[in-house]
Design a protein around this nucleic acid. Structure first.
Length: 291
DNA sequence: CACTTGACCTGTCCGC
DNA sequence: TGCGGACAGGTCAAGT
């Protein structure tokens, strides 16, 4: 479930909390979550200082003083939550739905303890997520990063760039293309449905049937949907929380996602849910006509 | 090349 | 109350 806005919020939070802290201890209990943990942790993670937290697509990157990076992908149910020493000891003073004071729990797979006693928890109920320690120089070469398209919120990414990338796949349905990380990086199921509703485009529209005006609208919709989601703390369906264990409220503002059977806020027609690209897909059948 | 299906996992919900 | 099955959605690999 974490898509670009959620991962960006976690990045922002961690980048406030982690830089300057030195790793003292690493515990992990699920090998697939951290496949190269044995070989490199002692050499490049223990004793290293966190310098900066960055993001590419839906991946978080903790830059370390050891010239390595700890890369994390949250996939659908992953969480990366920081807890300071005081909260670890007392746990109190936080809202009842906050995770702080309740960690580790049964979904905790990795615990990083810093020299000052604070901890970073990697939780993942469904165990799809992963952490990997890689030399900085190798980051651009791993498959995951190599094939990614541009960041939609980069200032130099324009609607014409979007058009050029979409035109490489004229016969693809627009929703499939939005979900394809090699076309644009960071969009997932929630924000593709929301962007398409906002631009009044049916998710199954073939790209060759989209005039420039629609692609421009889609570009604008995508950017404003992503920015609104960041402003609202992201979308929490079940699992997503930020770097301090707080949930996001964007789904309260969603127009179609998980709103099948409710009325379209633009025209009053009932929102429907179909299956497309193997995913639940939500749309207004009147606003979003298939051409 | 476009598209679908299955795999990876667990928790929740629905119908019987 | 318990049980089986469908479903949730990010990514990759394999099949149509």
């Amino acid at each position: 479930m974490p898509e670009l806005p959620e991962v960006e919020i976690v990045r922002y939070g961690l980048n406030v909390l982690l830089p300057g802290r030195t790793v003292e201890k690493v515990e992990f209990n699920w090998r697939k979550s951290f496949p190269n943990a044995d070989t490199d942790v002692n050499n490049f993670l223990i004793g290293a200082k966190v310098e900066e937290v960055t993001r590419r697509a839906k991946a978080l990157i903790l830059k370390l003083s050891s010239q390595n990076s700890l890369v994390t992908h949250l996939k659908m149910t992953g969480q990366l939550v920081f807890v300071d020493k005081k909260s670890l000891r007392f746990g109190a003073g936080h809202p009842s739905d906050s995770l702080i004071g309740k960690l580790p729990d049964k979904s905790t797979h990795v615990i990083i303890t810093f020299k000052d006693g604070s901890k970073l928890f990697f939780n993942d109920q469904r165990k799809f997520g992963w952490m990997r320690l890689l030399p900085n120089a190798e980051l651009p070469q791993i498959d995951f990063f190599k094939k990614l398209g541009p960041e939609p919120l980069n200032k130099d990414f324009t609607w014409k760039d979007l058009k050029a990338r979409l035109n490489h796949r004229p016969n693809t349905k627009i929703k499939s293309a939005l979900l394809d990380q090699s076309v644009i990086a960071g969009i997932g199921n929630i924000y593709s449905d929301e962007s398409l509703w906002s631009a009044k485009i049916h998710p199954a529209t073939q790209i060759c049937n989209l005039p420039d005006t629609k692609i421009k609208k889609l570009y604008q919709a995508m950017v404003s949907v992503l920015m609104l989601a960041i402003e609202k703390g992201g979308s929490t369906d079940k699992n997503y929380v930020d770097a301090e264990g707080r949930r996001g409220s964007y789904l309260l503002f969603a127009n179609v996602f998980r709103r099948e059977g409710q009325v379209c806020s633009r025209c009053g027609t009932l929102i429907i849910k179909i299956r497309l690209a193997g995913r639940g897909t939500h749309l207004c059948p009147k606003c979003q006509r298939l051409v």
